[in-house]
Write a protein that binds this DNA or RNA. Sequence first.
DNA 1: TATGAATGAGCTTTCATTCAT
DNA 2: AATGAATGAAAGCTCATTCAT
Lengths: 214, 214, 214, 214
Amino acid sequence: MASRQEMRSEETKKAILTAAAELFSQKGFDAVSIREIAKEAGCSHTTLYIYFKDKEALLHELSVGPLQALQKQMENVIADSTLSQDDRLKKVSVLFIEFCLSHRTMYTLFFMVKASRIDVEAEPAEELQILRTKLFDLMKSALLQSLPEEKNEARALAFARIYFYALHGIIGTYTHSEETSEQLMERLAPTFELSVEVVLEGCKQQMEKGAGRK
Amino acid sequence: MASRQEMRSEETKKAILTAAAELFSQKGFDAVSIREIAKEAGCSHTTLYIYFKDKEALLHELSVGPLQALQKQMENVIADSTLSQDDRLKKVSVLFIEFCLSHRTMYTLFFMVKASRIDVEAEPAEELQILRTKLFDLMKSALLQSLPEEKNEARALAFARIYFYALHGIIGTYTHSEETSEQLMERLAPTFELSVEVVLEGCKQQMEKGAGRK
Amino acid sequence: MASRQEMRSEETKKAILTAAAELFSQKGFDAVSIREIAKEAGCSHTTLYIYFKDKEALLHELSVGPLQALQKQMENVIADSTLSQDDRLKKVSVLFIEFCLSHRTMYTLFFMVKASRIDVEAEPAEELQILRTKLFDLMKSALLQSLPEEKNEARALAFARIYFYALHGIIGTYTHSEETSEQLMERLAPTFELSVEVVLEGCKQQMEKGAGRK
Amino acid sequence: MASRQEMRSEETKKAILTAAAELFSQKGFDAVSIREIAKEAGCSHTTLYIYFKDKEALLHELSVGPLQALQKQMENVIADSTLSQDDRLKKVSVLFIEFCLSHRTMYTLFFMVKASRIDVEAEPAEELQILRTKLFDLMKSALLQSLPEEKNEARALAFARIYFYALHGIIGTYTHSEETSEQLMERLAPTFELSVEVVLEGCKQQMEKGAGRK
DNA sequence: TATGAATGAGCTTTCATTCAT
DNA sequence: AATGAATGAAAGCTCATTCAT
């Protein structure tokens, strides 16, 4: 029932979002200019401001929806009792990795949170921050459920960190790759899974040692 | 024997390098302007162009020396027969991490190598690329020496990758931190070591499994 | 009899004029954007261009009506034989001042006539110019009627100028005030009247002196 | 002893100041763009930022020096015991008028002080504000010294206001004129003096009346 | 009549870089 | 060797205005 005009509008918006997503992924948020996005989207740079308040809003719109979808997926996996704890962790991790490689702006969003952002205008980014935290919490609890109970909280934190280092490293390594996320996943998905297994196994091993020492 | 003029010239160059190193570490490569460096170095911004083709050249010159020193250190560790293989790997890894956190531009240099660079003007970057490769090879061989022999080359590569993911993750996580490298190392050195141990232990475990399966 | 469509059209136009008048008074001509007016008027900004060629045209249309009303009022005062000449001048002046403070764009219109305007498109502004001149002439003749006859035309002109300086000064002083015209008039009407009296009395005094000297 | 380079620099700066002064006068501070000034000054718009931090700094530099000179002159006149009180007032007033017509940006500076300025960034403008107040105070006290003592403070204030209306009116009337200040002063100086006399005489007259009434 | 879509020109400001000295 | 002067390109963003519907 959409009029032709509405369709055109929708198309333009989508073109902008697509262009922005592409460019943000390739060059990073800061390195991409509004005019660049507009050119890629085939419209004037002012048109961009019709659809998005500013560059940040564009990033926001680009992120929130997909992130919420990801959150849902991850929650489903974690609630899936047909899977072993370890498989849940593996699946959740791969989901997260794949997501970040498909939406490469996410790398900045997840791993490059600067203090400067928080200072002044937390408002527009806040929703994102909350989502970010939620996802990290999901993964952390999945990890801890896969490990034997660790009483020493500092040590539990250390293991969580090590797990996140691995994720960060995987995503960071391929964020600027020229391969598509599909190509990367096809080529490397086993390595990613192996990576999670390695870290998980290594943690367990260390915990045994630690326990034995005590 | 250097004439007075040559000495003064050398001093200026050193001042520029010092200022640039300081500022790059503090604020990151992109966030520092040429004029800022010049002001800090106590000379005009045009002087900078006498010694360095551009900002990038400055970064390169800034990197080569320290990297060579790092290389030496790493080679020494690897050649140190008083240490176990595992300890050599751990030490080499921590050296590398510490180095990258002290010279934060290194993160970009090591992990953000873009294709675009290579196309056009490979020449100045070449030396760096060689160094980079050397260091990675050093670490890779240290890792493989710590692992039982792996005939399957693809699998060996996978383990190397996983190890590098961890390094990348650690450095990437703290490259933009506001803490100094000293603060970070004091606070997190045990976690970094644990991280290497975890990965190493995990790899070993996986190799056993893999072997058993066969 | 107006059709329903015509009525609606008339309403829209009125809404735009009202909004523009309000905003121009509040923030000044330049500080108000077309979109702002449209939003206030409850229509699209493009609609504005249906009724008015541009922002300037809007200002003109906004001015002519009120100015004609003012002219009527001033003519009535001048023709009012129940008042003394001096009182007519005072009343006419205060009317003018109050009008300008209620319609603050008038300040620009009356006192900021630029040469550039006349060059290009005298047509739409012409009507305003005629009105402007009429009003000034009305006040000038009211002044001269209050003064003893002055044979020296240059001197008569000087007194007229001095009188207009006072008006210009009063209006200019408060055109950008944040007080409403009502507040200003309540607070300062006596000062405005006194101002006219002072100038009038001063002129008379000077004419005596001048006469004596001759 | 200035090198050729220094001279060129000085010339450029002067050209910018001249252009800015001219344009600010013609169109007002806000309506003039940096690029416009640069074009008029015959240099790139970026050159402007070499000499002045921003547009406001340009206005500042344009104003403070001349204003301080004016202040000196006015103080000298007021301290000059060879002149009658009335002559001091007249002279001070004409000085002020002539100054404003020579530096037409001053009109905005003196008479268009907006609330917005004061809010946020009073700092750069502060020095100007202080000077402004000083000059007004100088003129006000000169006026009150010329008038018989007025016990009623409100009435004294009213007279001061009326006097300032006249000044404002005179300056406002010719601020946008195309005549130079020299031309204007030659043509109208007698009228300006007469204007001060008229207001002064008128005030005295009114005070007599007021006194008689009491 | 009325409007959403779209644009070009313009704003202030910063930057890396070059030129003449 | 070293520098101040100067610039073009680019950034994010806003505005009045036009076009197609």
